[in-house]
Design a binder for these strands. Structure first.
Lengths: 238, 238
DNA sequence: CGGGGGTTTGAGTCCGTTCAAAATACGTGG
DNA sequence: CCACGTATTTTGAACGGACTCAAACCCCCG
């Protein structure tokens, strides 16, 4: 059996590329991307980049999941976004031409490629479709951020937690034998709190409340949702 | 004296263009933009576009100020952003290729140009710098949205209101004879609540609290801040 | 002068926070 | 593999900020 760290990957064989911004590249451009990239493996907790540091390029998640966190002077922090296989990382700072305004760390073991900013610039110049892809991507992210603002001010923690589960189910959920949805969370309780914008204690209570009402049952990071509609009901008619 | 509605404006003479995304255009491209554009004047409360409607193009604020609001099924709503002279409007939906996810209405009397999406597409194709400008712009907006998320979950309403005043001072404030900062708010109390993500009653109380502590004095939409540092103190060490 | 919307104030309630302690999970070394 | 120390999670009780509902007030305009 091939050992995982010796598995040589290229942009040509990258699983995530199809749904990434780079999917429009081909031929020499893809070759260029492939040779400019440097791949690293990060273990959970390891930091990919730090808030405040200058942006030297762009990262691309091949496999795994990472959190993008934003910090305060007072030590407060929230997770503003998550990224998984095929997602690109650190492009906000790149396009703004500013230092990172957020940090990023791995939630699961992750293979992540770094692409130097000069290479990115060249690829952008040569390939307008790449720029379009990033425009589309940022528009989507902006949409998500604005939705989050609305949710934060109009929904309870319980509803926001339910919403989080609904988002996570697309990437981390599957349907069990009995037809029930099962999600394996990539997040600790602390991180769920950071995603929802609240404290860990409050997440624990909200989790408990959902269990009592039979909406979902939690066992560590394993969540079972008997009826998806119950979860959907949580976020409307608050 | 020339009457305001008869004042013919062009992209060439547009005051806001210098700091807008379109500043990179010149010669025939600028001419193209100028002839594709349709200008309208909106009175406060008038809607520029509705959440849910298809995006037919992009708007550009020549003068005035508008709010971008996001609505719930339950009737909740927040202002996710404001836009003033030189700002572009509705580009999120354009680049995402989706219907508007937010509505926009004028806060002040505003001259706003509409540019058909075909024209925008042509300009983008011909002028890569335009795309870059929008990338930079969206990166900035994304930054703002993420900062808002952090603030919403770590700062009190009073601190968020103080932060709002600090943001508004750049565009709507000036220093009086006595050296005190004076801001003329473009927002009603209701809209301030929608910006901060709270209810009007809570804004009234926060306003009162700031007055009692001598940080700022409010008279309708006129705000006087004797010492800017006091306002800055409000948002740190919460 | 009489609406009518927006704003302010008040009182009561609820949700989420805070602080503290107990329980559980986790990693490490014996 | 178990024992131990540490970190995370959970629970409890008390507090506080923001929300709700309701009424009074104010200002603008007809």
């Amino acid at each position: 059996m091939e050992r995982s760290f010796s598995r040589v990957t290229t942009c040509f064989t990258c699983q995530g590329r199809a749904r990434s911004e780079w999917c429009s590249l081909e031929g020499p451009d893809l070759q260029h991307l492939n040779s400019a990239r440097v791949t690293n493996v990060y273990q959970p907790g390891q930091v990919i980049f730090y808030q405040g540091n200058p942006c030297l390029g762009i990262y691309c998640v091949e496999t795994g999941t990472v959190a993008i966190r934003r910090h305060d002077i007072n030590g407060n922090s929230v997770i503003v976004r998550m990224a998984s296989g095929g997602d690109t990382l650190g492009y906000r700072a790149f396009f703004a031409g500013e230092p990172y305004r957020a940090s990023s760390d791995a939630l699961e073991p992750s293979r992540i490629c770094f692409i130097d900013k000069n290479a990115v610039r060249q690829l952008l110049d040569r390939n307008p479709a790449l720029g379009h892809a990033f425009l589309r991507r940022m528009a989507t992210d902006l949409d998500g951020a604005e939705e989050a603002k609305l949710h934060a001010s109009s929904l309870s923690v319980r509803a926001r937690l339910s919403h989080l589960l609904l988002v996570l189910k697309d990437r981390f959920g599957n349907v069990g034998d009995d037809g029930a949805l099962e999600i394996t969370l990539p997040l600790s309780r602390q991180d769920m709190a950071a995603m929802v914008g609240t404290r860990p204690e409050t997440i624990a209570r909200a989790v408990r409340a959902l269990e009592i009402d039979g909406v979902a049952s939690f066992d560590g990071r394993r969540v079972v949702v008997p009826d998806l509609d119950d979860l959907l009901d949580e976020i409307e008619a608050e």
